[in-house]
C-alpha cells in the first residue's frame, strides 16, 4: 500500500451531508514515501480540500484515506503545512516563529522543553539552507514577502514531518522570487526526502518540482489525468526551456483546458 492512500474518497462540506457542497468526488490516488506530488486544476476545484482530507483536518464523507498504513480519523500529527499566506506571528522573532511547532507539537513539546539547544541549532541550520542566515532575530515585518515565505517553510519543516502539505505557497510572490523558491524547495526536499503534496495552479511550478502531477477536474474535484515527470534532478531554471520540460507543461495544459470546459 502507498504511503498516502486515497481510495474513492469524497468530501462534502456542510452540516448534514446531503445539502452540502461536494468538494472532492470519488478520488483515488496513491503517493509513495518520499515522493513529490503536485496537484493542479482550475481554481475552486477542490485541490485544497484534498489536502484537508490527507491531513485529517476534514474527514472523508465517503471512501477511505490512509497515511502510513493507518486510516485518517483525526488530524494527523506528522504533517507540516505552508500556505499562500505565511501566517508568521508578528510579535515573535523569525527563529521563534520557526520554533513555534516545537512548543506546541504533541510528543515533541516535553523533549523541547527539557533540552531546546539541538532544536534551536536545527532551526538555525534550516534557516541558513533557505538563505535566511543573519535574519534569525528579525521580526517578520522586517522581511520581504519571499523571505517570510521561506521562514514559513522552515516552520513547516522544523519538526521533521513525514509529510509536507503545501497549499499554493508561492502564489502571492513575484515571478523571480517564486522561481528562486522553487530552487529552495527542491534543495530542502533533496536533503531530507520527506513526502510532499503541493497544490498549485502554476503548471511550470508543478513540472519543476514534482515527480508526479495530478490534474483535477472542475468541482466536484476528481483526478482526471496523471503525469509522471521523469526529468533528472536537481532541475534548473534553464531546464524549464528544454523541449522535454515544455512538453510536460503543454500536456498538462491540454488537460487543464479539458477540466475547465467540463
Amino acid at each position: 500500500m502507498a504511503f498516502v492512500d486515497i481510495a474513492d474518497a469524497s468530501l462534502i462540506y456542510g452540516e448534514d451531508g446531503e445539502s452540502g457542497t461536494l468538494a472532492v468526488k470519488d478520488t483515488t490516488l496513491g503517493i509513495e514515501r518520499g515522493e513529490f506530488v503536485a496537484v493542479v486544476g482550475p481554481s475552486g476545484c477542490g485541490k485544497s480540500s484534498l489536502l484537508k482530507l490527507v491531513s485529517g483536518l476534514n474527514l472523508a464523507t465517503a471512501g477511505r484515506v490512509a497515511v502510513g498504513g493507518e486510516a485518517v480519523v483525526r488530524p494527523l500529527k506528522i504533517v507540516g503545512m505552508a500556505f499562500q499566506n505565511p501566517t508568521l506571528l508578528p510579535w515573535r522573532r523569525v527563529i521563534d516563529n520557526v520554533l513555534l511547532p516545537m512548543e506546541v507539537a504533541d510528543g515533541l513539546r516535553s523533549q523541547y522543553r527539557r533540552d531546546p539547544a539541538p532544536f534551536v541549532a536545527k532551526a538555525r541550520d534550516i534557516l541558513a539552507t533557505v538563505g535566511l542566515k543573519g535574519f534569525e532575530d528579525k521580526h517578520p515585518w522586517q522581511l520581504s514577502g519571499g523571505m517570510q515565505q521561506r521562514a514559513s517553510l522552515c516552520r513547516a519543516l522544523i519538526h521533521n514531518p513525514a509529510l509536507l502539505l503545501l497549499d499554493e505557497p508561492f502564489a502571492a510572490l513575484d515571478a523571480f522570487t517564486r522561481e528562486e523558491l522553487w530552487g529552495v524547495m527542491q534543495t530542502l526536499w533533496l536533503k531530507e526526502r520527506f513526502t510532499v503534496i503541493l497544490v498549485t495552479h502554476d503548471l511550470r511550478e508543478a513540472t519543476f518540482l514534482a515527480d508526479t502531477v495530478y490534474v483535477m477536474s472542475n468541482r466536484p474535484g476528481r483526478v482526471i489525468y496523471t503525469r509522471k515527470i521523469d526529468l533528472k534532478r536537481p532541475r534548473t531554471l534553464e531546464g524549464c526551456f528544454e523541449p522535454a520540460f515544455v512538453d510536460h507543461v503543454h500536456a498538462l495544459r491540454d488537460h487543464i483546458s479539458i477540466a475547465r470546459s467540463s
Binding site: 500529527k77 507540516g80 503545512m81 500556505f83 499566506n85 506546541v104 507539537a105 504533541d106 513547516a156 519538526h159
Partner: peptide, 17 residues
Amino acid sequence: EPELRDVLRSLGARKID
C-alpha cells in the same frame, strides 16, 4: 487565521496552547 489554526491543529496542539 484559519490557516494558522490548521497549522497548529495538525501539530496536535492543545486548545490551551
